[in-house]
Design a protein around this nucleic acid. Structure first.
Lengths: 265, 265
DNA sequence: GAATGCTATTCAATATATCGAATGGCCGAC
DNA sequence: GTCGGCCATTCGATATATTGAATAGCATTC
């Protein structure tokens, strides 16, 4: 009975890992990902507060694993193509992205919107795992791998609506969000309640001015949603009566997906 | 004068890394990528010859970095969405993929072929970094992140043709390749020579039976090609006089790309 | 043209990540 | 219901990865 709620003890932040090289490696990869140009050893070490020699050893190991590529001429490092390989494995392994792709393509074409399928990581964030652009659309595009804070936009309202989170935790996360037109917490909670009732979340110009986003949740298991589908369009291109229709389409696909990925487990 | 040829001493294989945790982490990631289902600690440790406790520490570090995801219920591990994020950074960072995408789309549409842009990693392999599917094509598709041994197919002939490699090394690599219809080494060398003269590589049904592949090299710097574009089609759908035309289109795009990515550096 | 600041890299001492055995918990067998 | 085997996990001893200073190579400065 000690662990019935299934969560690991929340206070147990891994203060000091038993494999610090991996945290360092990951930090290096993220740094190289953020940088537009290849970086030398010293800039990397300085930025990450690493001892240069240690940093060098980590980099060499990463190069050996082809996660980082190294230009011998300039002695500069950048991300390696091995990452693409692993990402491909990820997409292969997770059935959700493959199942969702044709569905979001269909909705995108039918309604002329941009559709995104995301994976939800608790209250931390959600990550785009499939993206569909409407044919002659404006550039409302995201890429696979983009990440968003969990409670933002329409998807955020779905997440808040379908998980039993304490108000205190929600508020703490909510306060850190960046919106073009920030709603008050109370306003937002009302919209979350609405999302719970209607089965889809709606963000009308709050997240990005002039842009309307709809989202519906997908459940792998009962409880919190594991994934979601969202549809994005310029607000003025969405006629008022198109919204319920679009919402129905999203919800329909989400229900289908929920069945498909839960029966697989 | 000691290092004028710019290459690191070839015999210096990093026998034992100074950051073994990273090699272990990478092996775990690849293993999880290959597996269809999430794996428990013990299967991972056994398969990779790791001490379970060490493996656990590495896994925990990877989970903390979101490169691996962990199901507390079943205590199983699988690839995490953080990899997608890094891969997105990769695509962002490398101008080649972005520049090549519209070009291969155009060629794919014009000739009804499948086009792939690849990054070349020496004599080891090449990796698909952008893929374009022709509209109503058969399923001759690859995915971004797929890897191929360096000397295979039409791209392999380009690599062999444009680098000054010793015959001994070439032969060693060549002998390990898998073809549907393997050419003899002499036959293949003749085709490599032809690729050098004509500026593009051709594989007519050797790599995959019934499939013809063309490829042309892209040079970031003088010497060995850094990237390549390839076009793939069912052999019977390619009329004989379409091949030179397709080759010209590929070569034209490759020259353009060579200028674009070299002037950037 | 010499010197200075930077770089990447090596090396020996030590803090520590790794190992292997021991623990406790879970599930299925009998 | 009890036992047995497998699992994930902890823990102390030790091999070793990490550290910080010292070395060597370049490019730019004066």
């Amino acid at each position: 009975m000690a662990d019935t709620d299934g969560k690991p003890p929340l206070g147990t932040v891994v203060r000091e890992s038993k494999a610090p090289a991996i945290a360092r490696a990951s930090a290096i990869l993220r740094l190289l990902g953020r940088s537009d140009i290849p970086l030398g050893l010293q800039p990397i070490a300085r930025k990450l507060d690493l001892v240069p020699s240690t940093c060098l050893y980590v980099l060499r190991a990463l190069v050996a694993e082809e996660l980082v590529s190294f230009e011998p001429q300039t002695k500069r490092y950048s991300l390696g193509s091995g990452l693409l390989s692993l990402a491909r494995s990820w997409l292969h392994r997770d059935p959700f992205a493959g199942l969702a792709q044709p569905m979001i393509d269909e909705i995108a074409n039918r309604f002329g919107v941009t559709c995104v399928a995301v994976e939800i990581s608790g209250l931390d964030r959600f990550t785009a795992v499939a993206v569909s652009k409407a044919g002659g659309n404006f550039r409302l595009s995201t890429e696979v791998g983009s990440r968003f804070p969990a409670l933002i936009s329409a998807t955020g309202r779905c997440i808040a609506a379908n998980g039993a989170f304490e108000e205190k935790r929600l508020r703490a996360r909510f306060d850190k969000l960046r919106w073009d037109d920030p709603p008050s917490f109370e306003e937002w909670q009302a919209q979350v309640a609405e999302a719970r009732e209607r089965g889809f979340g709606l963000d009308a110009g709050h997240y990005i001015a002039g842009v309307t986003v709809l989202a519906a949740p997908v459940f792998k298991a009962a409880g919190a949603p594991s994934h979601a589908l969202s549809a994005t369009a310029l607000s003025r291109t969405l006629t008022p009566d198109a919204i319920p229709e679009l919402a129905d389409a999203l919800i329909g696909k989400c229900n289908l997906l929920s069945r498909q990925i839960s029966q697989a487990a």
